[in-house]
């Protein structure tokens, strides 16, 4: 499911956002495809596409594994000559108790390789994470040319 929002009038320069509900493994594929489509449209290189789409795959699957459901919002922006986009992964899941520990390579609570968060941070130009225990998690990645 998708909803489109045009926030062009809100005075933040030119930006268009798309929200995708992430609730099943099929939605992970949709999220990947949306980001790949956008990057293709913005003429990012194939390597960049693979890099970012891999991170999107990790982060959107994290939503399903840890929170069950959530949202990914893609915000495309074009500000003073800098073109890029942000992806925000938000869920209202259990949250992360110790972010530093969760970001450590190889740390996992689900018997996975434990590379999702640490790897995504390395794969993306910009990565920020906020989490409150019992409230949810919000991860934002950004990419620009």
């Amino acid at each position: 499911m998708e909803k489109y929002q045009d926030s062009r009038d809100s005075g933040q320069g030119q930006s268009v956002s798309t929200t995708i509900f992430v609730a099943s493994y099929e939605d992970v594929i949709v999220a990947r495809q949306k980001v790949r489509e956008l990057m293709n449209e913005m003429k990012f290189s194939l390597l960049d596409q693979t890099r970012v789409v891999t991170a999107v795959s990790e982060l959107s699957r994290n939503i399903i594994v840890h929170a069950g459901k959530g949202e990914m919002t893609i915000i495309k922006y074009d500000e003073s000559g800098r073109r890029g986009f942000r992806c925000i992964f938000e869920d209202k899941g259990p949250g992360i108790a110790d972010i530093d520990l969760a970001m450590r390579e190889g740390y996992s609570t689900t018997n996975s390789l434990g590379l999702g968060l640490s790897g995504s941070k390395k794969l993306c130009k910009n990565f920020s994470i906020q989490s409150t225990r019992g409230k949810g998690t919000r991860i934002e990645i950004a990419e620009w040319k």
């Binding site: 390597l47 693979t50 890099r51 891999t54 990790e58 390579e105 390789l113 790897g119 390395k122």
Partner: peptide, 13 residues
């Protein structure tokens, strides 16, 4: 392929 190998290394796999 090249792009996958680079991504895997960055990912830390």
């Amino acid at each position: 392929r090249a792009k996958i190998s680079q991504t895997l290394v960055q990912l830390g796999v």
